[in-house]
Amino acid sequence: MKHRITPARFLQKNWLLVGILGCIFVAAIYPDLGSKQGPLRTEYSVKYGAVFIIFLISGLSLQTEDIFSTLQQLKLHLFIQLYTFLFIPVFTQAFVWLLSFFGIHSWVLKGLITVACMPPPVSSAVILTRTAHGNETAAIFNSVVGSFLGIMITPILLLFNLGSTTIVPLLGTVIQLIITVLVPLSLGQAVKSRTNLRGQRLPLNTIGQSALLFVIYTTFCDTFLVPETGLSAMDVIFTVFSVLILQISLMFLSFKLANRLRRYFSPQDIIAIMFCSTHKSLTLGIPILRIMFHGYSHLSQISLPLLVYHPTQIILGGLLVSQMKDWVYSQKTKRPPV
């Protein structure tokens, strides 16, 4: 007998998605509140507040032995990094070549190529992987490693794909990653090892998802306050649809490819692969674009695909979390053939 899906049951199962949609709505009404330099001072409250909390919770919830075992999964890490920095740029070049026949603005197409060269973020993929019951440790490790690699690889990819390059502030980026990721992660592990958190039943997952919603809200506030791009309404619509198709294709391919390699990857690994290998960082991406195209009149045009890509990846992730959670559970309940 099938359970009747009530509004309360739907909200309980999909509250992250409902929260994301609510964040978008509130940001559209009053974007100034959560924008950079706004009353919430998001340049500090997000980076050193919400993101810090996300990784502190990861440190509190992760098993130390799982961390060491995950570090040894070289095939998993290699798959994610190659997919991020090799497959996606090559695939996007082919995708852009197809789009060029539809008369899409050339700077928008360059913006799509730029997005493909970007490193992964260090928050959204982690929290989505955890919520979908994926391999959270692998998500953290590959997000951090991908960000470090992006400091060196992204300028090379931009040079190869666009004929332009830039110098990413190496020291500043490394310090930022240490403060926002490694410090709270280590602090969480230290607190866990010295206290009895298991008996406290703290709502760590709910707190982490709430922190992610705050990050999403501020991201959309900045998105809604983007100045005039100089593109027509049709160019913007084409950009949104192009980014959406690109992301769906990349997530589908990463899931299918990883699923074909099931002898190497568990269902939890596949969830981490799908989110970590396809997400792109707005935090690192925008500074790179501003340095590379400083003084260019086309900066807003080439930035548009990245501004669209970042919130879209979170919306798609929110849509998929519940289904992926059910899929992981279904894989656990399958009995191996006799």
Results as ranks from 00 to 15, higher is better:
Leu177Thr: 06
Leu225Ser: 13
Trp15Ala: 04
Leu177Trp: 10
Leu225Phe: 10
Leu86Val: 12
Thr239Gln: 08
Arg198Ala: 12
Ser210Cys: 09
Ser124Met: 14
Gly34Glu: 06
Lys332Asp: 08
Val168Arg: 06
Ser35Trp: 04
Lys332Asn: 12
Arg9Met: 11
Phe55Gly: 01
Leu257Ser: 13
Trp327Asn: 00
Phe238Tyr: 13
His310Gly: 00
Gly317Gln: 08
Ala125His: 05
Leu213Gly: 00
Ala138Met: 08
Tyr48Ala: 04
Asp326Tyr: 00
Pro227Glu: 15
Lys13Pro: 01
Leu78Glu: 04
Leu284Gln: 14
Val90Gln: 04
Val18Gln: 03
Pro287Leu: 04
Ser254Glu: 12
Met274Gly: 13
Ser249Ala: 15
Val144Cys: 11
Pro311Ile: 04
Gln12Pro: 00
Arg290Gln: 15
Val96Pro: 03
Val18Leu: 13
Phe68His: 08
Gly163Leu: 06
Phe141Tyr: 10
Ile291His: 00
Tyr83Pro: 01
Ile88Gln: 04
Leu246Ile: 04
Leu284Lys: 05
Ile273Phe: 05
Ala139Glu: 02
Pro39Gln: 10
Thr70Val: 10
Gln301Leu: 07
Leu253Thr: 15
Leu182Val: 10
Ser123Lys: 05
Phe241Pro: 07
Thr129Trp: 09
Leu162Val: 05
Thr92Arg: 03
Thr6Ser: 11
Ile179Arg: 08
His279Thr: 13
Val240Met: 13
Gln73Asn: 09
Gly34Leu: 09
Thr278Tyr: 02
Ile270Cys: 10
Gly318Phe: 06
Tyr217Cys: 07
Ile57Cys: 07
Gln63Thr: 12
Leu212Ser: 02
